[in-house]
Design a protein around this nucleic acid. Structure first.
Lengths: 225, 225
DNA sequence: TCATTTCTGTTGTAATTACAACATTATAAA
DNA sequence: TTTATAATGTTGTAATTACAACAGAAATGA
């Protein structure tokens, strides 16, 4: 267990917890480590989840299989990343995705109930752990909500402006840098890259915005009507 | 405070908490009630959130304003509904939406830190509260993730099949009822209703599925190639 | 520097979609 | 039952989009 302490210290879940406390907390959480070879099931779709998983070493894939058996990779989990934490919070609903090792993996499992039930005195950092756990779920929530707002628009133009508007507000400035290149932005908004570039050109021609590489400026006055 | 107990008892947050415990817990949570007239700000975009809000009476609107000042209604919160709970979990990030009373409203505010820090002995149901709170955030997470998976598909056909496949798997059956009518389904997937109906017809002609009203059947064999 | 690769913009075409308008079928109400 | 109303299906057209193919710009590395 000790050999993984450096990984745990860097993880978001244990952020702000004193290194020497982590070992104590692992006991309190009934933490256990399992080893997987490549291409093993770590979690099977349909399972009822009571533990939160954290990848210590290696890489795991979160995948989903549709009605016709077609697999989609939802995401990748690497060192320090939690998985199945959403389902652990709702033990009555079976998980609808599978987690599979994409390489040899060491995985840490922690009882969700132990995370929830702050132990009396022993581990002083338990509240911090709970806070980190909540924070990580809330952050994902935020990311999803934001993305959804852009994606629910019908045209590329609306999606793009929705995204840029949000970035502008976040930066408190009409000029700002975005963290995506064109292909990444297109993927994020689920649109075609060339169509995105095209629309950007049009918006620039119409004086609605200007851009150069990843730096954008939105124009306040739309000269409507 | 007592007059709202019947509302609190029905709320998801206090689900499973004995009615007589609720009053005690409200004190422990530093709960306070504020009254709003119609069209007042309950929360302003940019605020740093430390309390979770619950609408007791009336209706509140969660709205967002974009770079050009255009307002969008994100959702409606009615009796028993929480709001701002995601941002309460991430006190370092200012909220990016506003909450406005859509009628006269009574609103309950509870300190997030009090929810998090389970008090020693007084309220035995505190863990249950925390569980409910986590569950509500996790559920939203699930709903968003699922919707995102459908919406990230590029064509109406793919979006629809993604949705129907998920419903089928959830029901463990190739025949299942969906909780939407055509217009609601179109709105959910952000597509045009008539285009949706049209695509459904085509899929039925091609033998990929059959449907009658809200009952769908997916066909296992796709006769590909 | 030059060569290579990656990123971005541009264009044309075929496919997909939104939208409107209307037909048909259910559902509710009288 | 009949009538009114809502929900769903159908069709045509204009707008939007994906996709492919390519050109130019920027970044990278020798």
């Amino acid at each position: 267990m000790e050999e993984y302490l450096s990984i745990l210290r860097k993880s978001n879940l244990f952020s702000g917890v004193q290194p020497e406390e982590i070992s104590a907390m692992l006991k309190c959480l009934s933490a256990r480590i399992k080893h997987y070879k490549k291409d093993e099931f770590i979690i099977r779709s349909g399972d009822y989840i009571r533990s939160v998983g954290m990848v210590l070493t290696g890489t795991a894939l979160i995948i989903q299989e549709d009605f016709w058996g077609k697999r989609t990779i939802i995401s990748e989990a690497m060192s320090g990343a939690l998985f199945a934490e959403t389902y652990a919070c709702i033990p009555s609903i079976p998980i609808e995705m599978s987690v599979i090792s994409d390489s040899e993996c060491d995985v840490l499992f922690m009882d969700f109930n132990r995370i929830l039930n702050v132990c009396t005195s022993a581990c002083t950092f338990h509240t911090r752990l709970l806070q980190n756990f909540l924070s990580s779920i809330a952050r994902r929530n935020l990311i999803l909500t934001k993305k959804m707002q852009h994606m629910s628009k019908k045209t590329i133009r609306e999606k793009l402006l929705s995204y840029l508007s949000a970035e502008s507000l976040k930066n408190n400035s009409s000029t700002f840098d975005i963290p995506f290149n064109r292909q990444q932005l297109a993927d994020y908004l689920s649109i075609d890259r060339s169509a995105l570039s095209n629309e950007m050109s049009k918006l620039q021609d119409e004086g609605i915005l200007t851009y150069k590489k990843n730096r954008f400026t939105l124009k306040e006055d739309l000269h409507e009507g």
